[in-house]
Design a binder for these strands. Sequence first.
DNA 1: CTGTTAGCGCTTTCAA
DNA 2: TTGAAAGCGCTAACAG
Lengths: 351, 351
Amino acid sequence: MATIYDIAKKAGVSITTVSRVINNHPYVQEETRQRVKQILAETNFIPNSNASSLVRKTTNTLAVMIPDITNNFFTTLLRGIEDKANENGFAVIFGNTDENSSKEYSYLQTFMERRVDGLIIDAVLEESKNLKSIIKREIPVVLIDRQVNDLPIDYVGSNNSKGAEDIVHYLIELGHRQIALVSGAPEISVYRQRLEGYKTAQQKAGLTVDPKLIFWGEKPNQETGYRLTKKLLQNPLRPTAIFAANNFLAIGAFRALHEAHLEVPKDMSVVCFDAADTDATLNPFFTSMVQPSHTIGEMAVELLMRRLKNKKSAPTKVILEPQFFRRESTAKVEMERGGESVEKGNPYAGL
Amino acid sequence: MATIYDIAKKAGVSITTVSRVINNHPYVQEETRQRVKQILAETNFIPNSNASSLVRKTTNTLAVMIPDITNNFFTTLLRGIEDKANENGFAVIFGNTDENSSKEYSYLQTFMERRVDGLIIDAVLEESKNLKSIIKREIPVVLIDRQVNDLPIDYVGSNNSKGAEDIVHYLIELGHRQIALVSGAPEISVYRQRLEGYKTAQQKAGLTVDPKLIFWGEKPNQETGYRLTKKLLQNPLRPTAIFAANNFLAIGAFRALHEAHLEVPKDMSVVCFDAADTDATLNPFFTSMVQPSHTIGEMAVELLMRRLKNKKSAPTKVILEPQFFRRESTAKVEMERGGESVEKGNPYAGL
DNA sequence: CTGTTAGCGCTTTCAA
DNA sequence: TTGAAAGCGCTAACAG
């Protein structure tokens, strides 16, 4: 591959001049610039950014770590990040942690070896051991979605407690009194916050929160949703509604209900956080509280860019409001037949 | 940040020895190795891969270019790629082209500047101008999904013509005789192949293919599906079924039908290529031909790894078979009422 | 086994 | 305006 030496020789100038032309440095005579540009083009020269990164100490690369790109919430988040990064001339490199702390650690390692300029992280756990090592090195980090116990760093997420409160309130309004929570681990901030909202809604309505109706699982995925719901159905006190703390848990719950020959919403109402997926535009089913994930991604990049310019500004926390969508997975309690007599939400509300 | 010089000084050895320890080179005395390792750990040393890439001429990075990460087909593809890449110690960097050739070009440019070891590309168009420049530089490329006119390079995709033929055949068996095709641009191989299958199925059944029932749009997205279906409904000869050449086109088509107060499948059957999305596990709707996208991604990385080891082996083409799922968007033609009397596919077939 | 040395391809003083 | 020279942090002969 051609280097700036080759170009310099052909153009009869020094490599410094070639470098200046490539980087649009002003101190190059127009005539010289044209000659060099010409040769650059003829040669199809492509600069080696590894070399320039080495001396510039900046890579124009940003790393993203998310639990699983396959979950629509994270996909959209990543898309938001990529769009904004591209706009700013940054490349993005990413990893799926699968809620696995040691996978997270190993990705962090490669990202640091690559000397990425900054990281956007949806952390696996709050035990911030993994994160502290980056922060100590003063590599800019923006946390998204999940908060990590009061580290003084930038954060973008949404109002989980308020969102949870509102959606549980909706269930209460429909007449539900036994509402189960099917959730991810309380070690993860968003699930703790959603629990909080779940409790608040009930307390405000003068209901007592029954700990027997709260089900935790480690990983917030389909499998967990399925397993917890199975367990929930064994409960002597069977709830009339389930609040699934995320979309995948809801899908798992739905499968368990289906297997038990329980119909949603006739026999059980189900609501969840996050859109079950893109297809929500076509075939929306779950009444849910949807986070502005694309925006969260964009905001995260913006905070990162800001911090890159000013390493020492105070950490910013951005909390966005999730949006409520009423769909077909919920019904009034104690009706003869399913959702039919319930005013259905506009299934195209999300379009 | 610490460099190998710092480590060397502290350990009282040369930088070469430090380098050897880091890279597990055998020619280091066990005692020395331990001492260096100790210091490496104490210092929290993280090697700079930009520097080593510069001399090794390899970055352990692989670039992926896809139309839109937000489409479930590509998400899963990317997940397959990431999994396999990670397994091989490679990082992945990616870009969304949004079917935009100049965006593709610009990504290609940054990927090359970063000296990625190889590229996995779902090309925007077949005009291979963008691609030829990489191939000329002998950077390994694996094409996925869409073929590019007979470039002699590795390829992984699925059997589009056969898949299309089978699914259209299914419609014919249901009694449909006027079947419309709503598709992406014929400049893209997969759409040409699906057209081919669409024709073959009809010809084999002794039907004549009516060109008036074939609708092309440029970008295979929801908007196009919507627009083409609107147009299709103006047609004096209204079809009884639509074959949408991908999932997003199908969603767009569905919206247009809904607006026209046509029910699926009562008034119009709809089938498509690709799963409408992840949620297909929960709420499968479209009868569709689903590609093994995760596997396609994994295979692509495998081909790339193989080529990295042996630059000159003959190009391999891998064609995987898509899988048919019968769901609720199809019905026999000329029935009094919708899908009710039709034997429905098991909606959980995909689980 | 260990160290010296010469780069990898580029940017950035500094002096001209 | 231009160029010479000194690295950025690391690897890879080569000699010992």
